[in-house]
Simulated scan of single mutants.
Amino acid sequence: MTVLFTGGAYQGKAALAKRLYPALPLETNLQDRVREELENGRDPMALKARLLGKAVTCDETGCGVVPVDPAMEGWREAVGRLCCALAAEADAVVRVTAGVPQWIKGEAP
């Protein structure tokens, strides 16, 4: 099973993932992994295969002011693309706001 938790920073995504899906390995802060891949000249989309079968948290990066720095814009787009690809294969996608889950795809366990 693959579950993607998304939402703003510090909204309780990891705590919720641990509580709802304790048997799944947890991968937190996907946006940081994407940054590391880009900084090392690797394609962040290659991460998708490694994320399947896990509960994955990712801060939303597409809401708010569009970055002026092209590198930051590229990072933001790469995070979005990877989340879209992961969501397409995930069993559930959950948006978390103030610790409250909203199922975008799938159902609550």
Rank of each mutant, 00 (worst) to 15 (best):
A78R: 05
A85E: 11
D59S: 06
L51N: 03
E36D: 13
E73S: 13
P70M: 09
E73M: 12
L51Y: 09
P70L: 10
P67D: 11
K18V: 10
A55C: 07
A15I: 07
L24A: 02
A23S: 14
V96W: 05
E89F: 00
A78M: 07
I104Y: 04
T61A: 14
P44L: 06
P25W: 11
V96N: 09
V66C: 10
V79Y: 00
Y10I: 05
L82Q: 10
A14E: 13
V96R: 04
L51P: 00
K13G: 08
P101C: 07
K13P: 02
R95W: 10
G8K: 00
E60I: 09
R50D: 15
E60Q: 07
P25S: 14
E73G: 09
V34K: 00
L82F: 08
L26F: 02
L4E: 01
G64R: 06
L82A: 07
A9T: 13
R33Q: 15
Q102H: 10
D69L: 03
G12N: 01
R42N: 14
E60P: 03
A88C: 03
G8I: 04
V94S: 03
R76L: 00
A71F: 07
A78Q: 02
V34M: 02
E89Y: 01
R76G: 05
Y10D: 15
C58G: 05
E73F: 12
G64K: 09
I104D: 06
G64P: 12
R42T: 12
T61E: 08
P67H: 12
A98L: 13
F5A: 04
R76K: 03
K54C: 13
C63Q: 15
R81M: 05
Q31C: 12
L20D: 08
K18F: 03
T2V: 08
E77N: 11
E89N: 06
D32A: 15
G106D: 04
T97L: 13
A90S: 12
K18Q: 15
G62W: 01
C83T: 13
V93P: 01
L86C: 13
T97S: 13
A71Y: 05
V56H: 00
T97R: 10
E107Q: 03
G41R: 03
D43K: 09
T28H: 04
N40I: 09
G80T: 08
V94H: 08
R35P: 01
A46N: 10
W103V: 03
D69M: 05
W75P: 04
L52V: 12
T57Y: 00
